[in-house]
Design a protein around this nucleic acid. Structure first.
Lengths: 183, 183
DNA sequence: TCATTTTGTGCGTTATACTGTATATTTTTT
DNA sequence: AAAAAATATACAGTATAACGCACAAAATGA
């Protein structure tokens, strides 16, 4: 209940308002109950794909217009409201700030590795790259058969067609931002 | 659980298979449980938008590629599996065979009106039209301030910017197919 | 052929999507 | 300002989405 549902909430409310329709009107036209529509607009519900289907079909709008974030919008991502996508307690946490979306050509993540821990990642396919910017600590990166040390404030770009390992060989926490891209 | 979920089912299975991934692989990459993915692929579940979000994001595919019916597909719509969208028992039933979808420029419905019953419809906006083909009975249509009688086998096209009324003034059931279009 | 591993399904539990009805809130009318 | 109407939220009940674990089925290897 935290990312796409909020897009749907804003988008649905926007189309309804610009069309000057009431919740009852939309309920009538889509076959989705008024209460559900209200909850969706308030971001209190995580609708099913069939419900979305009824809405887009009844309102005759493209699916993506509900689901995508209007790209004029300002988007604020709170780390708090963001549960780590991959996480091993006491080892590492991987946060998705701007994960894949069709309209973008890159993705932004944050990784946090605890002292003496590491994380191994498989390849991401041909012509994929990561840009790592270290915010705190020292990152030891193993990629393309070599080992790199990236210090706080530094940044690296490398191809990710092959396996790569992020490790924290220090006694302080390591944090870095990942921009992932392809082609 | 009946239309879009089936698209999702087929589409998800197709991408997974072409990528030669197991359910475990997809679960790992998306953060959606293996059992859920299995149910989705078997068309046994009606996933929420957040779950879909995790899938499209993890697999890096466009939202629409899950949701749309591959337009090479043959689509069979069973009346049985299709609960009437609008229905008043003993009066009329309105079935959505091919409702709005972005990739199409028309929609196809079927309407069934019981003896001596009628159905009133508001306007659908500028430059919208209906093509009605009567399959059984006699349709009495009121539109644009005039009254038309359409007999079994006949067809009519008329603009639907204004109110219109379908009535069955006979003692037999009335059935007709509606093709709705715009512009 | 039988073990071993890999991949998919079934099952019980919990959280919540969705509905209909009732209540609250806002807007409009008199 | 009060009454009436229109619109949005609250609530309670039911169905089911989503998960983790255990089992089954299929594929692989010895």
């Amino acid at each position: 209940m935290e990312y796409i549902s909020q897009n749907v909430a804003r988008n649905l409310k926007r189309v309804r308002k610009t069309r000057k329709m009431s919740l009852d009107d939309v309920a009538e036209q889509t076959g989705v109950s008024k209460s559900m529509l209200g909850q969706i607009e308030r971001g209190e519900s995580n609708p099913t794909v069939e419900t979305l289907g009824k809405i887009v079909s009844g309102l005759r709008i493209p699916f993506t217009s509900l689901v995508n974030s209007a790209n004029t919008d300002i988007i604020i991502v709170n780390k708090e409201s963001l549960l780590p996508f991959k996480s091993v307690e006491g080892e590492y946490q991987f946060y998705e700030y701007f994960p894949y979306e069709e309209s973008r050509t890159f993705e932004i993540y944050m990784m946090q590795i605890h002292p003496r821990a590491k994380n191994c990642s498989g390849g991401h396919g041909e012509n994929t790259f990561e840009y790592l910017t270290v915010i705190a600590g020292i990152l030891t990166l193993e990629a393309e058969g070599k080992i790199y040390e990236i210090k706080e404030g530094d940044s690296i770009r490398f191809p990710t067609h092959g396996d790569h390992i992020y490790s924290n060989n220090t006694d302080e926490i390591l944090k870095f931002v990942i921009t992932f891209t392809w082609n």
